[in-house]
Structures are given as structure tokens and as C-alpha cells.
């Protein structure tokens, strides 16, 4: 569950968001749309605690931004999966290691890591590419690796910031289908995109943001 109560945040030199009220239920798939610079990414940053509300507060799966300390941030982030337009895979290690990394850095045991990574690779349909380096994969495949990495810790929500922005039509459909599949298994998804038409077509809830405000 992600819930915003009258949240405002602005950057020193550029606009942020103003008086945002938002409620994403567990298991919901929501699109955030709006032109670039509208504040979509800021909303996501507020959820993964890269930024903190200057006014208002946010509830995240039982946590309240007014109460959490810096120490809590890593532990909350483990429950939030992040996917970006530029994938953010580590280029010095293969697909398997990129996904295992997410488990390794939070101290999961080796035997458990192997099992879990193989499972998740199967889920995203990349078992056969596990030893490939990210740069040897297509954009769509790289994004699937990134989604696998976001998913491997079993987060309650996945935040996707323009995940299809760098992809062609075919790959875009593929990634969307994968996100839908993940959503059907119970994980909430909040996806930011400037492509209103694409969001509309899915039939899911679409939240439109412009100039830092929710307009519909």
C-alpha cells in the first residue's frame, strides 16, 4: 500500500510536486502519466525515499515518512522494486550476477541465492541467457533482467520509471505483458510514462500529473 497525504516537495532550482494525494492499494497497477518535467519521477523518488516530503506524509506498507529515520531507508527499499528507463545494470558482471547482486548485498545465503535467481530468471524467460553480459542483450532483454532484479526480493510494489522509454514497439509490449503478469501475482505496480495513449489502452487506472499536480 502506498498512500500520499497532501505531499509537497520542491527542488531548490526546479519544480517538484504540490499537494499530492494518492492511494495505491495492494495489488493495484497504476500509471502515472504527464509530460516530461511534470513530476512523475519526483513522485517515484518520494516513494523510494530518495526525497522526503517537505509537507504532508507518505504511508508505505506500514511505514510513515514522518517517523522513519535514515537507518530505516535501506530496509524499506528492500521491499520496493525499482526499474528505470536506462536499466541500470552493472556492466562488469553477467545476467545471473546482476540479479544475484540484489540478494548478495542484503546478506542472503549463497545456496538460497542460486535457487532464487534461477527461479526468477525462469519467470522472466531468460534462463538461457544467464551467463551473458548485459551489453550482449537487446534492450528488451536488459529491461527484463532489470525487472527480475527488482522482483527478486519479493517487493510489495514495483516502481517503473519510463521502463519502455528506450524500447521499440515489440519490446514495449513484451515488457508491459511481463509487468501485467507480475501484477497478477499480487505485486503492486506504479509505472510512470509520458505515453498517455499506451496507458489508457491497458484499461488500468491512469493518474495524470501536470506541473506537479494531479489533474485526474
Amino acid at each position: 500500500m502506498v498512500r500520499f497525504f497532501n505531499v509537497s516537495f520542491s527542488y531548490p532550482r526546479s519544480a517538484g510536486v504540490e499537494n499530492i494525494n494518492l492511494y495505491v492499494k495492494n495489488g493495484e497497477f497504476v500509471f502515472l502519466t504527464g509530460p516530461s518535467g511534470a513530476g512523475k519521477s519526483t513522485v517515484l523518488k518520494l516513494i523510494y525515499l530518495e526525497e522526503f516530503p517537505q509537507r504532508g506524509n507518505i504511508l508505505l506498507d506500514g511505514y510513515n515518512t514522518q517517523e522513519i529515520t535514515r537507518k530505516d531507508i535501506p530496509y524499506i527499499r528492500r521491499k520496493i522494486g525499482m526499474v528505470f528507463q536506462d536499466f541500470r545494470l552493472l556492466r562488469d558482471r553477467n545476467v545471473f550476477e546482476n540479479i544475484a547482486f540484489a540478494l548478495r548485498i542484503i546478506g542472503v545465503r549463497r545456496s538460497r541465492i542460486n535457487k532464487r535467481v534461477l527461479e526468477i530468471l525462469r519467470d522472466v524467460g531468460l534462463s538461457h541467457k544467464k551467463l551473458k553480459m548485459p551489453q550482449a542483450l537487446s534492450g528488451g532483454e536488459q529491461q527484463r533482467v532489470a525487472i527480475a532484479r527488482a522482483l527478486v526480493n519479493e517487493p510489495f510494489v514495483i516502481l517503473a520509471d519510463e521502463p519502455t522509454g528506450n524500447l521499440d514497439e515489440e519490446n514495449r509490449e513484451e515488457i508491459l505483458a511481463l509487468l501485467h503478469k507480475i501484477n497478477e501475482r499480487g505485486t503492486s505496480i506504479i509505472m510512470a510514462t509520458h505515453n498517455y495513449e499506451m496507458a489508457k489502452k491497458t484499461g488500468r487506472r491512469v493518474i495524470r500529473i501536470d506541473k506537479g499536480k494531479i489533474i485526474s
Partner: peptide, 8 residues
């Protein structure tokens, strides 16, 4: 950066 995002 990635480590931070993944909750290290």
C-alpha cells in the same frame, strides 16, 4: 548507486 537503490 545501484546498491543504494537495492537497499544495501
Amino acid at each position: 548507486k545501484v546498491m543504494r537503490l537495492l537497499g544495501a
